[in-house]
């Protein structure tokens, strides 16, 4: 497949997959692309002679051939770059500083914090070793990332503070630079912690699902009471304390709120501007998403895209993670192949120091890779993850979205298909819908700006 065409929000759009060129066309071109293959002008003229004037068809063919000559249409398949090294460099780790939590979210992939094992906190020694693991295995890379994660990382602030001090010292000694993030449910946020996180330039991912009833239904305290009122108060104060910068409010939607666009807009109505909601990943339960839900979910993304544009035009815009698409630059091919890097560039570290391909794999013992004290001992799995990219996966290689989604989530593929090379179908369908919305939005904004 070399092109993808779709109609959305009044725009006929053609994406040239291998170059990334995005063309907004008229209905005539859109229809002709069902027949035109780059070398069959006579067939196109014959097929459309009764519908359009011959001169018009010839005019369109001339424009199409010009795009082909400019490598913006039917461009050649991108192959694995020769410099896509067989030897990956570690770029980031997810530090599970706490396998414990003060909420009991119904959909938690982490088994409400303990990842199916005993609850526990990461020691300062393990945190230091995790930092050294990156330094030792990142080669000439300068920039690395560490996410403080859980469970709930604020339940182990002693280790977080120690790790941050250690990281800053090692930056000075090694010349490496670490970007730090912390993912929290917001329960323990207070003025003192806000000040600390701001002073240390730690980006935040804050969990909020949307409307009160939606959030409380899925994110109760241990005693079953809803957490919405406390979380909204806390995250509002935290975001205000950092002048509305350097954060993402991240929600999860389920079969219980298939009208999730209303949840995004509810959060936006409260003045928050950096937003994301993700589909729950679950099966065989009342909140799991199924293929039957897809048409309704697609309509919600369409509605969200409309609202996104309307608010942006009024100067009341918000950023939605999945609509942020850089059509002019974007990641390099190597990055598009390696995607999240789970299992070869990115690792999760448990409180005990064990290494897994990512936070979602923690607790799946067959994916244990080693530990921060002795390094990666399973040498086969990282290679399998590195080779599990879009050009090597049968279902991805011919998919129009391959250079935007990077092959989907390995953990979901394993969960649903027991094979990291077979992508999770519902995830694929939702990703493609979000991409069409993002392409439409960026194309429309480019047209409106007269670019």
């Amino acid at each position: 497949m070399n092109i993808h065409k779709f109609y959305l929000n009044g725009l006929y759009i053609i994406l040239d997959i291998n170059s990334g060129a995005v063309h907004v066309v008229d209905k005539m071109v859109y229809d002709m692309m069902d027949v035109f293959d780059g070398s069959n002008d006579e067939a196109v003229l014959s097929a459309f002679s009764g519908q359009y004037l011959a001169e018009e068809v010839a005019e369109v063919l001339s424009e199409l051939h010009q795009l082909i000559d400019e490598n913006k249409l039917f461009s050649k398949m991108v192959e694995v770059p020769l410099h896509f090294s067989q030897k990956p460099l570690v770029k980031s780790v997810c530090l599970h500083v706490a396998h414990d939590c003060n909420l009991r979210c119904n959909y938690c992939f982490a088994g409400t914090g303990d990842f199916g094992h005993t609850r526990g906190l990461m020691s300062k020694e393990v945190a230091e070793r995790a930092v050294e693991f990156i330094i030792e295995n990142s080669g000439p890379r300068i920039n690395s990332e560490i996410d403080f994660f859980g469970g709930e990382p604020l339940m182990n602030m002693d280790t977080v503070r120690h790790a941050v001090s250690y990281i800053r010292r090692r930056e000075t000694e090694t010349g490496k630079k670490f970007k730090l993030t912390l993912t929290t449910n917001g329960v323990l946020l207070n003025d003192e912690i806000n000040q600390y996180l701001n002073d240390n330039n730690i980006s935040l991912v804050l969990s909020l699902d949307g409307r009160r009833e939606v959030h409380d239904n899925m994110r109760p305290f241990v005693n079953g009471a809803g957490s919405y009122d406390m979380i909204l108060k806390n995250v509002t104060k935290t975001i205000d304390s950092r002048n509305g910068q350097n954060y993402y409010l991240r929600g999860t939607f389920t079969a219980h709120n298939l009208d999730f666009a209303a949840d995004v807009l509810d959060i936006a109505d409260k003045g928050f501007t950096q937003l994301s909601v993700e589909p729950v990943v679950a099966e065989d339960c009342d909140y799991a998403l199924t293929e039957e839900h897809l048409p309704q979910l697609f309509a919600q993304y369409d509605a969200l895209a409309q609202a996104y544009l309307e608010r942006k035009r009024k100067g009341q815009g918000f950023e939605f993670f999945h609509f942020n698409l850089d059509l002019d630059n974007g990641p390099c091919v190597a990055k598009r192949l390696s995607g999240c890097g789970a299992g070869h560039e990115y690792f999760a570290v448990t409180p005990e120091g064990d290494l897994y391909p990512c936070h979602q794999f923690v607790g799946r013992e067959e994916f244990l890779l080693g530990d921060v004290f002795e390094g990666v001992k399973n040498t086969q799995l990282p290679d399998q993850f590195r080779q599990s990219h879009v050009l090597n996966k049968a279902e991805c290689r011919d998919c129009w979205a391959r250079f935007y989604c990077s092959g989907g989530c390995h953990a979901n593929a394993d969960l649903f298909n027991k094979d990291i090379n077979i992508p999770y179908k519902i995830g694929c369908e939702l990703q493609k819908k979000r991409l069409e919305c993002a392409l439409m939005i960026q194309a429309l904004l480019a047209l409106e700006s007269g670019k």
């Binding site: 291998n18 990334g20 995005v22 461009s75």
Partner: peptide, 12 residues
């Protein structure tokens, strides 16, 4: 007249 290209893959 019929096609507008709105943006400008081959090109740490």
């Amino acid at each position: 007249k019929h096609i507008i290209t709105v943006n400008k893959l081959q090109e740490e």
